[in-house]
Design a protein around this nucleic acid. Structure first.
Length: 266
DNA sequence: GGCCAGGGTAGAA
DNA sequence: TTCTACCATGGC
């Protein structure tokens, strides 16, 4: 996508589909404001409009919104698959955000067996409870900051039974070089590492790989994806995952977003 | 008031 | 390796 950075604004030369990008389930920290959205990532914030992005750190959000990528080529390659037609019709403006790894790990541990509005609320309350004050909003906590939060406090913030997973994951991520190592690892090794974290199973690992590590050779299978393939042979998440990984190859993660968004748009 | 939500885990088969 | 019961919580 073509753009120009002027001061604290990123001026876009083609429109950004804010709704599709933000509501396709990859990001939980945003809210509607007049004419656009306020979006938070790690300790940063921006205002997102269809024609511009405004932030004190514009280059962070150039990377965050993956503005240097040309999605036209990806869409062209995927448009030959009939099952993607509706998702591409309503969600062709989707872009895979390049999000913070630690924030993705914690957010998707919370996402397990949960719904998006509630996930957003839990994360917002955790940020308010232990994220540093940035003046008008609070940052996502660092591993060290989250480590200091107790199981009981997380439960009171609405985390439910995921509290113990969060406590144990925060301890690992703050006391070891896990985050560095998983960033350097190839997709297979990174998957194994992520699966070793408490509260991380196959689906959550795929979401972390896709949204936090920019690995598109992944295909998260949740209940919405399973609904779309009421098929005799594709009857388990692992079978569905293998089928679509072979079908879409290095564009699997993006294709999955079109299916997910299309399914939720009915 | 039961069902569902971007599922994972321990224990059993 | 795959199957099952169970796990908080809020919206519908």
């Amino acid at each position: 996508m073509k753009y120009v950075v002027k001061g604290n604004e990123v001026v876009l030369h083609e429109p950004l589909d804010c709704k599709a990008i933000l509501t396709c389930g990859q990001v939980f920290r945003f809210r509607e404001v007049s004419g656009g959205y306020e979006v938070f990532s790690s300790d940063k914030r921006c205002l997102m409009f269809s024609d511009k992005i405004v932030s004190d750190e514009p280059m962070y959000f150039v990377n965050y919104f993956d503005l240097d990528a040309d999605y036209g080529e990806y869409i062209n390659s995927l448009s030959k698959f009939d099952e993607l037609s509706y998702g591409l019709k309503v969600g062709k403006g989707i872009r895979i955000l390049r999000q913070d790894l630690f924030e993705m790990i914690i957010s998707f541990i919370i996402s397990a067996n949960n719904n998006i509005p509630r996930i957003k609320g839990i994360i917002e309350r955790i940020c308010d409870f232990c994220g540093i004050d940035k003046g008008g909003y609070r940052a996502f906590p660092t591993p060290d900051e989250l480590k200091r939060v107790t199981k009981e406090e997380l439960r009171s913030l609405g985390a439910g039974y995921r509290d113990i997973s969060l406590v144990r994951a925060a301890k690992i991520l703050s006391e070891t070089d896990f985050l560095y190592k998983v960033t350097e690892a190839n997709t297979n090794e990174a998957t194994k590492m992520l699966l070793s974290l408490p509260g991380v199973g196959p689906k959550v690992a795929d979401c972390i790989l896709l949204f936090g590590l920019r690995r598109w050779d992944c295909f998260p299978v949740d209940t919405w994806i399973m609904k779309t393939c009421s098929n005799e042979t594709l009857d388990t998440p692992s079978k569905v995952r293998e089928y679509y990984l072979k079908r879409y190859g290095s564009l699997s993660g993006l294709a999955q977003q079109y299916i997910f968004y299309g399914a939720r748009e009915k």
